Amino acid sequence: MGKKMKSAMEKVEERQYPLREAVDLVKSSAYAKFDESVDLAIRLGVDPKRSDQMVRGTTSLPHGTGKKLRVLVFAKGEKEQEARQAGADYVGSDDLMEKIKGGWMDFDCAISTPDLMAAVGKLGKVLGPRGLMPNPKTGTVTFEVGKAVGEIRKGRVEYKVEKAGIVQVPVGKVSFKAEQLFDNASAILEAVVKAKPSSCKGRYLKSVTLSSTMGPGVRLDAVALTKQWS
């Protein structure tokens, strides 16, 4: 362990912090020379193997993620033009699919009109593992492609529970003001708490940790957060 990491860890006590205090601590303990990302790791009391306990959705961050996302849209005709006018980085159909089949993956999120999903679905083995497959549940399969591109540009993020029952979502950058990180983290936590499956019994938020890319994790008071938005 390096001296900087050791010094950062010494600032974090073995207790659960209120969100505002945790944000300040994450900012003060960040030490990397680059602008670190700040992320939430939320462990849920669900069984991801059960379809009725899959937690997945999207929410908009009030202050964005601090990262410019490269948006790809599968569309034709008028919808292709709509996507371009909305600011999508890459727009097309068969041409883009062929590039992806050839190994090209220079984009961060993908949107598709419903009429092209039969063809896009054939890219599942490539896009699926990377979390890039368009999905109606996250608003990325839609004829309102201009609106979808705009929402992503403004800071819409996707959350999805992984096999281990953990949801990991970016909330911004260390350079953000503390209030901005607080607002973004609150938006995500509220969305995840409200997405609790009706079949989930017992404690839903098992643990919540806020951290920067290189910094130590700061544990949040999961019980208080659950009460706040339940």
Rank of each mutant, 00 (worst) to 15 (best):
G2N: 13
K3P: 08
M5Q: 14
M5Y: 14
A8N: 05
V12D: 03
V12Q: 06
E14S: 14
R20M: 12
E21N: 10
V23C: 02
D24E: 14
V26D: 05
K27N: 09
S28L: 07
K33C: 03
E36D: 09
V38S: 03
L40F: 01
R43G: 08
L44C: 04
G45S: 01
R50Q: 10
S51V: 13
M54E: 13
V55Q: 05
S60T: 15
P62I: 06
P62R: 05
H63M: 06
H63N: 15
T65V: 12
K68Q: 11
V71S: 02
V73K: 04
K76T: 15
K79E: 13
Q81T: 12
R84A: 12
A86H: 03
A86I: 06
A88L: 07
A88K: 00
Y90F: 15
V91A: 07
G92S: 10
D94P: 02
D95W: 11
L96N: 01
M97Q: 10
K99D: 11
G103V: 10
F107A: 05
F107N: 01
A110C: 11
A110W: 02
I111H: 02
I111Y: 02
T113F: 06
T113V: 15
D115C: 00
L116W: 03
L116I: 08
L116Q: 10
M117K: 04
A118S: 14
V120C: 10
K122E: 15
K125D: 14
V126W: 09
V126S: 11
R130H: 11
G131H: 07
P136W: 08
T138L: 09
T142K: 03
T142P: 09
E144M: 12
A148G: 06
A148W: 04
A148M: 03
V149D: 05
I152M: 14
K154A: 15
G155L: 04
V157K: 00
E158D: 11
K163F: 11
A164P: 06
G165L: 08
G165I: 08
I166Q: 02
V167H: 03
K173H: 06
V174Y: 03
S175K: 03
F176V: 01
K177G: 14
E179Y: 10
Q180A: 10
L181F: 06
L181Q: 01
F182K: 15
D183P: 01
N184R: 04
I188D: 02
E190R: 15
A191V: 06
V192F: 04
K196L: 03
P197W: 02
C200K: 08
K201D: 06
Y204I: 05
L205M: 12
L205F: 15
S207H: 09
S207W: 01
V208C: 07
T209E: 10
S212F: 11
T213S: 13
T213M: 04
T213R: 04
T213D: 04
R219L: 08
L220Q: 02
D221Q: 08
A224K: 14
A224H: 10
T226A: 14
Q228D: 11
S230L: 13
